[in-house]
Each structure stands twice: as structure tokens, then as C-alpha cells.
């Protein structure tokens, strides 16, 4: 009996959420396409090459994973700002593990995932079961990870481990997208392993959100906590799971970042949480919860990194202009969301 009403109500809720989701998703994709076309038209050269696009993916594989985790938490109405520093901690821990403790690649992977899960579990427990504001909990997590990174090792160093080097330099050739360079030699287009991992994560999470019970519960809890509870959804467990998955993503994302840079440093991934939040918001995830889409998040990351590339190729001093443009974009998308919410409230 209860399952019947459960299904019909959730279906209704989903349809309402989907209209918002699709609207925001369309905005995101349009923004990305317009931006990329503008870049091709006005800046030409580099942006027409497929490899430029693939490089955006190469550089942002870890950000894609982090943002996906962030989106999950944001869909349930929470937030996790510790992911960036967890990434740094994962890099440092793995680097030390590989070079000083004689670990191998497989165990370092487990270490990375373990660190991420540990953060996810603790933060999820505090947020879901003790009902503490997610921002405060994860802010503490951020600073804890930051401090731990320095405690493990306070200076930057490159990993020498051969096994790891072999994995780091492995690339996957993408067929048909190669280009002929100035010397007339055909250079095949490639992506790093991290990109494959990122795409797998994106697809898995997309499927999970769309077609599994847990995924649908995320939307229900984010949309309305109390009615989700009335429908018999375990709200606390759902929130907890969102944080655990986000932590897991931070661990995986951290390892992908580690594979990309191949070093440990306390200053790694500084501000990555900010980029992840911005990507999620640009990708149409609502801060208030209940609305969001992993594909949108994926495009959010692409939009964000395209604008960074544009800024860089305009020759503006990257250090400040990137931050300012990212903040401006975040601001605009937040305002759009706010307007949509206000309109919805008026309709009611």
C-alpha cells in the first residue's frame, strides 16, 4: 500500500524537479557551446584542434570527479568544502607512501580511497546523525586535511617510484582525432587514464541518480526533508550516504590529480573545492537541494575550464583574472538560480 503512494508521489516530484533540472541543464550546455564557439571564432588557432579540448579533459579529470561528488551532496541539500584539501592530503599521503615507505601502486590506490572514505564517513556521521551544519563540519574537515598534509610532509617533492611513473605516463589514444603538426607528422590525440576514470565515474553516478532507489532518495531528501521522511525514506542514512560517496569521489579524484601532477605538496589543489562548487552550480545543481544533474556538472566543469583557458590565452595575468572570472560566473549563476526560485515561489 505504502509503496504504491510512494511511487506515484515520487514520480510527480521527479517530474517537477526535472523541469528545473532540464532548464538549468540547457542553460549550462548553451553557455558552454557559446563560449567554445566564441573562443574558436575570436581566438582561433588552438581551440580548433581536438587535442585542445582533450587537454581540458586531461587537466580537469580530477575536478570532474570532485564536482560529481559535490553535486551528490548538494542535491541532498548539503555541501562539502573539504574535497580540495582532501585531494592535497591524498597526493601527499600517496607520494610519501610510494617514495619513503616503499609502497606499491595498488596499495597507494587503496590508501587514497581509504582517506577519502574516512573523511566521508566522519563528516557524513556528524552531518546526518548529529545534525550539525554541513558547512561547519566540512570547514573543519578542510582545515584538518590541510594541517595533516603539512604534518605528513611540509615541502613539495616529485615521486620517483618507477611503477607509478609508468602508470602516470600511460595515455590512451583517441582514434580519428589526431592532427598533422607543422613538420607534417601525424600526432595522435590522447587522453590520460584519469579521464577514463572520470568518465566512468560520471556515467556510474548518472545511472545511479537516475535509476536506483538511493539516487532517487537523494532528490527526495534534498527537495523536502520532511516529506521524504513521511514517505518512509531514511533521511539520515541518505544524507550519510551522500557524504560517503562524496568522500569516495574526493579519494578517487585525489588519486587522479596525483596521477596528473605526480608529486605531493601542501599547496596542491588549492581552491579546488571552490571550483567544484562553482562547476556544480554552473551545471544546474541547486544549492537548496533537490535539483541537479551529473551531466550538467560535467558540462559545468567544461565551461569553467574553457573560460580559464580563454582567460589564459588572452594573455591576462592568470593569477588574478581567473579567480575574478570564476567568481563572476558563480555569481551570475547563483543569481539565475535565485530568480528561478523566486519565480517558482510566485507561481505557488
Amino acid at each position: 500500500m505504502s509503496t504504491n503512494s510512494n511511487v506515484s508521489k515520487k514520480g510527480l516530484k521527479d517530474r517537477v524537479a526535472l523541469t528545473d533540472t532540464s532548464l538549468l541543464l540547457i542553460i549550462t550546455i548553451v553557455v558552454f557551446v557559446v563560449m567554445y564557439v566564441c573562443a574558436v571564432v575570436f581566438l582561433g588557432k588552438g581551440f580548433t584542434k581536438p587535442q585542445t579540448f582533450l587537454n581540458i579533459l586531461n587537466e580537469n579529470a580530477s575536478l570532474i570527479i570532485l564536482s560529481c561528488g559535490m553535486s551528490l551532496v548538494m542535491i541532498t541539500g548539503g555541501i562539502d568544502i573539504s574535497v580540495g584539501q582532501v585531494t592535497a592530503l591524498v597526493c601527499m599521503a600517496c607520494a610519501v607512501h610510494l617514495d619513503f615507505n616503499g609502497g606499491n601502486v595498488v596499495s597507494s590506490m587503496f590508501l587514497a580511497v581509504g582517506i577519502g572514505l574516512a573523511f566521508g564517513v566522519v563528516q557524513g556521521f556528524l552531518v546526518a546523525y548529529l545534525d550539525i551544519q554541513p558547512f561547519i563540519v566540512t570547514l573543519a574537515g578542510l582545515f584538518f586535511a590541510k594541517g595533516m598534509t603539512t604534518i605528513i610532509n611540509s615541502s613539495q617533492f616529485n615521486v620517483q617510484n618507477e611503477q607509478f611513473q609508468a602508470m602516470k605516463t600511460t595515455t590512451v589514444t583517441v582514434p580519428l582525432l589526431g592532427a598533422v603538426n607543422k613538420q607534417g607528422v601525424y600526432v595522435p590525440a590522447y587522453v590520460e587514464i584519469g579521464v577514463i576514470v572520470a568518465l566512468v565515474v560520471v556515467i556510474l553516478l548518472f545511472v545511479a541518480l537516475r535509476w536506483t532507489k538511493l539516487g532517487r532518495n537523494f532528490y527526495a531528501v534534498g527537495g523536502n526533508n520532511q516529506s521524504a521522511n513521511m514517505l518512509g525514506i531514511n533521511v539520515k542514512l541518505t544524507k550519510f550516504m551522500a557524504h560517503v560517496l562524496c568522500g569516495l569521489c574526493a579519494g578517487i579524484g585525489g588519486y587522479v590529480y596525483f596521477m596528473h601532477v605526480g608529486s605531493g605538496s601542501p599547496s596542491h589543489a588549492a581552491g579546488a573545492e571552490m571550483n567544484a562548487i562553482a562547476s556544480s552550480i554552473i551545471g544546474g545543481t541547486m544549492l537548496t537541494g533537490g535539483v541537479g544533474n551529473i551531466i550538467g556538472t560535467f558540462f559545468g566543469v567544461l565551461s569553467l575550464s574553457t573560460i580559464k583557458n580563454i582567460v589564459a590565452s588572452l594573455g591576462l595575468d592568470e593569477a588574478w583574472w581567473t579567480n575574478i572570472t570564476v567568481a563572476a560566473m558563480l555569481c551570475i549563476f547563483l543569481l539565475v538560480q535565485s530568480v528561478i526560485l523566486a519565480r517558482k515561489a510566485n507561481k505557488k
Binding site: I136, G141, F143, F144, G147, T150, P266
Partner: peptide, 17 residues
């Protein structure tokens, strides 16, 4: 270490909250 201090403070925050 100045950067490590944040870890101790984070623990204090968690205990407090």
C-alpha cells in the same frame, strides 16, 4: 608548524560543535 596548527584547531572545532 604554522600550517599544521589548522589541524589542531579543526579538532577543537569538531569537539565544540
Amino acid at each position: 608548524n604554522a600550517n599544521a596548527i589548522s589541524a589542531y584547531k579543526a579538532v577543537v572545532v569538531i569537539i565544540l560543535v
